[in-house]
Amino acid sequence: MSTETMLDQAPARELRRPLLELRKVSKFFGALRALHEVDFSIYPGEIQALVGDNGAGKSTLVKTISGAHQADRGEFFFNGKPVSIASPDDSFALGIATVYQDLALVGTRDVAHNLFVGREPTRWGMVDRRRMVREARQVIGLLNVDIPSVDALVSQLSGGQRQAVAIGRAVHEGRSILVLDEPTAALGVRESHQMLTLIETLRDQGKAILIVSHNLLHVFRIADRITVLRGGQVVGTRRKSQTSGDEIVKMITGADML
């Protein structure tokens, strides 16, 4: 079953224009084909989940969207207009913020700086440390997580606290799209719950959200649509209301579907 037929069955929302659309995007690492002609869309005010087994190409797709990798083939459209995402700056300029699977934090720096690495606010040609600290406190407050202080070195935080810092950064800078690669992987039950609630709040504010997760419970709780990736190819996209955990598992593993 193709993505198109699925969308035919799911009217209303998909008639809107996607905020970000990928057409036939391919990515190679040497001879390894990590992504093959991936068609993929993200809509404003929606949570789009991306699932698939280890090595399916989820993080690779995330990184082509964030500008960390350059796609070898394919086209990107933002609000219907063709764009190129060749660097993290291009992605940032489109209002896309990404939480990477390995978090990409600088352990030797404090929480405040980590929330702004690469985008440090300046004043009179110098880094505006006061503003950084002030905004860092706001972000941490918003996330409602327990982080000792914005002066704490990230290397001294727990795994969950680090994840919160990485997400805080994305929430702070993501103006249109938030891309989250395994955002709940290191979080406890209560923290995961809080995180999912936060993601729903952001969706309700009209942001487009792409979330990668192995936790189908989480996926089914918050996703509006689910895309399954296997061996670098899109197996299919389903509205949550029109699929089941069973079907998604079959799509992920490649077991007989129809």
Binding site: S66, A68, S87, P88, D89, F92, T98, Y100, D102, L103, A104, L105, V106, G107, T108, R109, H113, V117, G118, R119, E120, T122, G125, M126, V127
Partner: peptide, 24 residues
């Protein structure tokens, strides 16, 4: 201690790939 370049030097040394991913 004060300039954006200095902050980027610390970020680059602390986590080169991470800093790159954030646009440094």
């Amino acid at each position: 201690a004060k300039t954006k370049f200095g902050y980027h030097v610390y970020a680059t040394g602390g986590n080169r790939e991470g800093a790159r991913l954030h646009g440094v």
